[in-house]
Amino acid sequence: MSSNENSNDRPITVGVIDDDPMICQAMRLILEDYSAGRLNVVFTCTDGSQAIDETSGHHPDVALMDIAMPGMDGIETTRRLRALPRPPHVLILTSLSPSGTVERAIEAGAEGFVSKTDAPEEIIRRITDVCVGLPQFNPASQRQLINDLNTQQPQSRRDEARAMLDALPEREREAVVLAAEGFTNAEIAERMFISERTVKAHISSAADKLRMGRVQMARLVERADLPERL
C-alpha cells in the first residue's frame, strides 16, 4: 500500500464490487455518509473484470468484494487483485453460505469479512482496522472457518493413517489390520494361512516401520476407517 495509507490527512479509498447495483449504491451511501469524511468510495462495479480495471486505475486502499458474481467470482477476482503491483486490502462482502468460502477467500488473499447486514459503524471500523494490518473476521466468518476446519480435520487424519498403512508390505498390513480388529495371533495365522511365528514377525516388522506398539497400531487402523472387506 501507499505510504499515505496510515496518514490522517486523507480518507481511506474504497472500491465496492457487487453484482447488485443497489448494494453498490447502498454501500457507497453508508461508507461516505457515516464515516464523517474518513472513507471515500472511488468506484463501484458489478463484475470481476471491471473490478480489476477499476482497481488498476484508482488504486483503492480497500476493496469490498462480493463472492457470488456471474463469470469471475469474488474469490478469483480477489486473487487477481492481490496479484496487482499495488494490491488493495480485500474484505469479503457476503452472507457466507457455501461451505469452504472462508478458507478459499483467505487462500486468495482476503484479509477479512463484512456482512451486508452489519451496522454501518461496524463496516467502517473493519475497513479502517484492516488498513493497519488487523485481520477482520466477523462472528459468522469465524464460525464457518471453524466448522470447515472441523470437517476437514478428520478426513485429513484418515487419509494420513491410510497412507501410513499403505506404505507397509501387503502381508504386514493385513496382519496389522486383523490384529486391530481383535483377532489373536493364532486366529490371524489361520486366516492368512501362515504360522503364528510369521504373524508375530509381520506385526513386529510393521511396528518397527511405523515406530508404534500394538495398541498404537490398532488406533492407527481405527483412524484410517478402512472400507469393509467383502
Rank of each mutant, 00 (worst) to 15 (best):
I17P: 07
E196R: 09
T55F: 06
V215Q: 06
E107K: 04
L168C: 13
R10A: 10
A161Q: 03
S115M: 15
E160P: 02
D159N: 14
D166T: 10
P227W: 01
V62A: 07
L91K: 03
A105W: 05
K200T: 00
E54C: 14
N147E: 15
L165V: 09
V130F: 00
V177E: 03
S7A: 13
H89C: 06
P169Q: 15
Q142T: 14
Q155I: 15
T13P: 07
M192L: 06
R126H: 08
R158A: 01
S7R: 12
V102I: 14
A189G: 04
L134I: 07
V199H: 00
S204V: 04
I52T: 03
D118E: 12
D159Q: 14
N40K: 13
R28A: 15
L31E: 08
M27A: 11
L93A: 04
A207M: 08
C131I: 05
D20K: 10
C45D: 11
E121Y: 06
L81K: 00
A63P: 01
G71E: 02
A218F: 05
P60I: 02
V114D: 03
E32N: 11
P87F: 09
I123D: 05
V42D: 04
D53V: 14
L64A: 01
D20V: 15
V102T: 10
D19E: 11
K200F: 02
L134G: 01
A175G: 10
A175V: 09
T117W: 10
C45V: 15
D166H: 13
K116V: 13
S3F: 15
T198L: 00
E54R: 08
S156W: 14
C131R: 06
S195P: 00
C131W: 06
Q25L: 15
L220F: 08
S95L: 10
M22A: 14
R28I: 15
S2H: 13
E222M: 07
N8S: 14
E111H: 10
E222L: 10
E170S: 14
A218R: 08
T198V: 01
Q153T: 15
E121G: 07
V42S: 00
G133T: 02
Q136A: 01
V199D: 00
L84M: 15
G133P: 02
D208V: 15
V215A: 08
I124Q: 03
Q142M: 12
A140Y: 06
D18N: 13
R211D: 09
L84C: 12
I17A: 11
P227Y: 03
D225W: 10
E181R: 10
R10K: 12
V130E: 01
L210D: 00
L39N: 08
G109D: 03
V221Q: 05
E181K: 10
G37L: 08
R158I: 04
Q155G: 11
Q142E: 15
I17Q: 08
V215K: 07
